[in-house]
Design a protein around this nucleic acid. Structure first.
Lengths: 192, 192
DNA sequence: CATCCGGCTTGATCTAAATCAATTGCATTT
DNA sequence: AAATGCAATTGATTTAGATCAAGCCGGATG
């Protein structure tokens, strides 16, 4: 049950057997069906989630009711509204399962506690966040500098798995373009 | 000389006198004049920089020679090309002083060393990166969901200091719009 | 003091992508 | 197998913002 999480940790830092037990005790499992929500606009995000399997999206809704996907999360990824999680203030996001999913949940206080009892995890999260910083920075660079087609091509190159797994409209949203535009881009790219 | 850095650390984690010495020994000071570079396309980013004073921008150049600002950094901020810094691979970015500036530099190996000798800094960087994650995530949400005017208004609300301090063209670039568009937005907003 | 240059503004035009709208194709449910 | 409901496609039109081009202003430089 905790295999994937412990692997994720061990890939980055050494961890003792005793610490593994501590880790396991800090998490609970949630099983989700397609379209279940872990978080809705207005909720406070009191937990962060480690995806064991399935696929989640984190998104906002604008005034016109359009979804804007800020994050995907599949097996081995962390997800949640970090803003709300850290501040304790209400989120303006939705966290939804695109597929049946299982996630490991850790509450704010439990994580804080765990970080003091197993301090090597500070290093784990630090490394995780650094890698994440690189990825999100690349995304920003693409968003401010590239046109629709180039953004899509970079996305496919970076996450070939997603391009197949996730409905196109979510990818379009993630790239900041419309589903219609993405559809047209795909036929044009294929023609060449 | 190390005041601002030590304050930045102490705001987030407790640190002993001995550890402060260790920190100071790990950094060197660089003084920059306006338009000096700390990093150019093709360089490997072997250091990260903590800004003591002045203002830096991190940007890419596209095929058309247009700058795309991915980051600002003023007093108390960290900056550098994290991708190149972590991987040791060449950067495709420029890091330039917009004003005369002083930065504290820490080499890759020295930071790794420091993190093992002063492990509380793992926590410092972890917290820093979490806060940063929230900010950059907000930026992404704005980039994929908002029009030019709303992006600008959010920027001014979040960083009122910058709006005055930095030439508009860099702000435009940071927002993913042209200087012309930003100029027009500003007069329109003022009219109302 | 003059001039030079970079940054900002303003206007005219163009274009990539959004929007609006209809149709089709799948997959899930009944 | 019919029916329902999304997702994707395709076409027509609109629009936000880019691009191109000139002029202008203010601070740095000889």
């Amino acid at each position: 049950m905790y295999n994937l999480l412990l692997q994720s940790i061990e890939k980055k830092v050494p961890i003792t057997q005793a610490a593994k037990i501590e880790v396991q005790n800090a998490f609970t499992l949630k099983k989700l069906r397609k379209r279940d929500y872990l978080l809705r606009d207005g909720d406070i995000c009191n937990e962060m989630y480690f995806v064991k399997n399935g696929c989640m999206i984190l998104y906002t809704l604008d005034d016109g009711g359009n979804e804007h996907v800020t994050q995907f999360a599949v097996e081995g990824w962390w997800v949640g509204d970090m803003y709300s999680y850290l501040s304790g203030l209400p989120s303006n996001m939705f966290l939804e399962a695109l597929e049946p999913a299982e996630v490991l949940c850790i509450k704010r206080e439990d994580r804080e506690m765990l970080l003091t009892t197993v301090p090597i995890l500070e290093r784990y999260f630090r490394i995780l966040l650094e890698n994440n910083f690189v990825a999100i920075h690349r995304r920003v660079a693409n968003l401010i500098s590239k046109g629709a087609e180039d953004k899509y091509l970079d996305f496919v190159k970076l996450y070939p798995q997603f391009a197949l797994r996730v409905p196109q409209k979510y990818i379009a949203s993630y790239l900041g373009i419309t589903p219609e535009t993405l559809s047209r881009i795909r036929v044009q790219s294929a023609e060449r």
